[in-house]
Design a protein around this nucleic acid. Structure first.
Length: 283
DNA sequence: AAACAAACCTGTGCGC
DNA sequence: TGCGCACAGGTTTGTT
């Protein structure tokens, strides 16, 4: 569910409300959530530390601790990070609880990791050993918001490969953070079909793709991300985003294209993911 | 090298 | 009302 704009929204919440807080106690319910290491390793690595930062790389949340370790949180399909008053009733599928000490101006609170489908994970790791402890994080591609994805760099990424655009945009080892919703929205904005080949776009197509990435993602971040009907994605306080109202193709199969007013939105499957585009706007 | 298929889980919505 | 199936914001692993 959450892609770069949603994860970035959570990161900003953590930066504002959790950085500087001391972790007094940690509970782990479902062991699957901490499967990269173990229940005990998460408890031992987090208890008694202070969270000193809130960073993001692609869809990975990274919280540096005063111990020198970092917490990595990946929400995958259904993960949520929520903040609540100490003792509040927890929702079903709350797998990790970090008890945050009270401070000046606020009381004791709890940070919850909630995840019905249990694809998500939480782990404490040693960032100097990331290549061994979290190989996929170490091999992540360029982040279009946190890093500088220039037109020249994007051109090189596109031309060095012979790939369909949709699977390429979803490939976290190339560009980190774009998921199924934003891949479709970016390709529509760029007026490129999802089945175009990356090395056959031409300078104009490459430029449109570059522009689209840098228009869609920041706009979605500003809107607090996309929250669909099931409200699975919410921010730290349980509030949804509003970018779903700006979707032009995602979830609009069979509807008239908002952009051209002539085409009809088609749904195909690419990279095993539903793919939406306007055959008239996108070529 | 790159696309495809299955797997990991739970919940929801829809047709019958 | 209930059942069964399709589908869901992601990623990994193994196969063509």
């Amino acid at each position: 569910m959450p892609e770069l704009p949603e994860v970035e929204t959570v990161r900003r919440g953590l930066h504002r409300f959790v950085v500087g807080r001391h972790v007094q106690r940690v509970e782990v319910g479902r062991e699957r959530t901490v499967r990269r290491t173990s229940r005990q390793q998460l408890i031992d690595g987090l208890t008694g530390t202070t969270i000193i930062g809130a960073n993001r790389r692609g869809k990975y949340l990274l919280l540096p601790l005063d111990s020198g370790d970092e917490v990595m949180i990946h929400l995958r399909m259904s993960g949520q990070v929520l903040i609540a008053d100490a003792g509040a009733v927890r929702p079903p599928h709350t797998h990790v609880v970090a008890h945050l000490a009270p401070g000046v101006g606020y009381g004791a609170q709890e940070l919850w990791f909630v995840d019905p489908r249990t694809f998500g994970e939480v782990v404490v790791f040693d960032p100097t050993n990331v290549a061994v402890e979290i190989p996929d994080l170490a091999r992540l591609g360029i982040d279009p918001i946190a890093d500088d994805l220039s037109l020249a760099v994007l051109r090189r990424l596109l031309r060095a490969r012979h790939r369909l655009l949709k699977p390429l945009l979803l490939d976290q080892h190339v560009i980190a953070g774009i998921g199924n919703i934003y891949a479709d929205e970016i390709l529509h904005e760029a007026r490129l079909r999802p089945d175009r080949m990356s090395d056959e776009l031409g300078p104009a197509g490459e430029r449109r793709l570059h522009d689209a990435i840098h228009r869609i993602l920041p706009a979605a971040v500003s809107a607090g991300g996309s929250t669909l009907g099931d409200a699975q994605y919410v921010d730290l306080f349980g509030a949804g985003g509003s970018y779903q109202d700006a979707h032009r193709v995602y979830g609009r199969t069979g509807e008239r294209c908002i952009t051209c007013g002539v085409g009809w939105i088609r749904r195909t499957v690419s990279a095993q993911r539903s793919t939406h585009f306007c055959p008239r706007c996108q070529r």
